[in-house]
Simulated assay, not measured.
Amino acid sequence: MRARIDISEIESETKIRAKYLRALENEEWNLLPGPTYVKTFLRTYAEALGLDAKLLVEEYKLRHERLSDHELARPIGPTRATSGGRGRGPTPPVLPRSYLVAGVLLALCVVIFILSRVGGKDHKSSSTPATAGTPATTTTAARTTAKPAATTKRKAKPASKLIRLKIVPTGTVYACLAAKGQPGARINGATLTPSTPPKTFKSSRFRLVLGNENAELRVNGKRKAFPKDAVTTSGVFVQITKKGLSALPKALRPGCTG
């Protein structure tokens, strides 16, 4: 929503159906095919938005992923094959599945209880003022203080260096577009009309030539006006970078065969 990206645009880019994308946004996991699909969808969706995919998947695992029914139903310990032969002892009884499920749930409750107690102690230790006579408290406080810094660094990593450019024709217009690091023209001298479906291009820098002003530029979802010095009687010549839009020098204008 902050980037003003429509859900249908993400659906086209990631090949994930819109209803699944909405389910991810609303955390309606029961509407998704299964945990494996959820993690795959989360990773693909995050990469499309320039977020930390690994961090989102790890958070989903910690908050929502549970043992599968197959793992809960699997018997504990090896089973012996029965045989009609003489001289063999009786087959050991197998515990009912409900007992196994109850045992696993009880073990999980115990683990959660222990972790909550340990976490409470760590929190209390970190909130106590450090003194020279309490080195253990100082170490815990230092470790607790350093942890958010590492988390902040990991979240700052996905700052995208790419620009999302969309050219929306408002009339008939000639267009020639080149992108940095991508061979050939992205739009090779094509004539665009309002009926032409607009495409989204990604790069760190664009060089654009238009035959006239019959087009709107949307950079990262925001509408941008042409620089005054980029509009001439022979056309519009624009250079697009993360710093903004500027007039494209004649020596840098792309050549298109169309």
Rank of each mutant, 00 (worst) to 15 (best):
S195F: 00
T233I: 00
N188M: 08
S127A: 10
A215R: 05
L72Q: 12
T233N: 10
R143I: 02
K147F: 06
R186V: 07
A185F: 00
A132W: 01
L56I: 15
P227T: 13
A149T: 12
E47N: 15
R218E: 13
R143F: 00
E13Q: 13
A251L: 05
V231M: 07
K121Q: 08
S246L: 02
I10C: 06
T233H: 08
P75N: 11
T172L: 01
V118L: 13
L32E: 06
R88A: 04
L72W: 07
L105S: 14
T232E: 12
T140C: 01
A179G: 10
K61A: 11
G171L: 02
G89E: 10
C109E: 10
A142G: 09
P169Q: 06
G85E: 14
K54G: 11
S83I: 09
P169A: 15
I7A: 13
R207P: 00
L248A: 04
L217C: 11
P75I: 11
A48F: 07
P135D: 02
D6L: 05
R2S: 09
F206D: 05
A190C: 03
K124Q: 10
Y45E: 12
T134M: 01
V168E: 08
L115A: 13
G120M: 05
R117P: 00
S8N: 15
A73H: 10
F201E: 13
K54V: 11
S195G: 10
R43Y: 09
R154L: 14
T14H: 05
Y174C: 00
K155R: 13
A102T: 13
D6V: 05
L49D: 08
L49P: 05
C176F: 01
E58R: 15
Q182N: 05
P33H: 11
V236W: 03
N220G: 09
Y99G: 04
L55Q: 13
T196Y: 01
S195W: 00
V38R: 07
G87T: 13
T232G: 12
P96F: 06
N188G: 03
P198H: 06
D122L: 08
D52R: 14
L165E: 02
R43E: 13
V101C: 08
L248F: 01
V118C: 07
Y20L: 03
L24R: 06
K228H: 05
G211N: 09
F201H: 14
F237S: 06
Y60R: 08
K124N: 00
L100A: 12
K61C: 10
R43N: 14
E71S: 14
I76S: 14
L252S: 12
W29N: 12
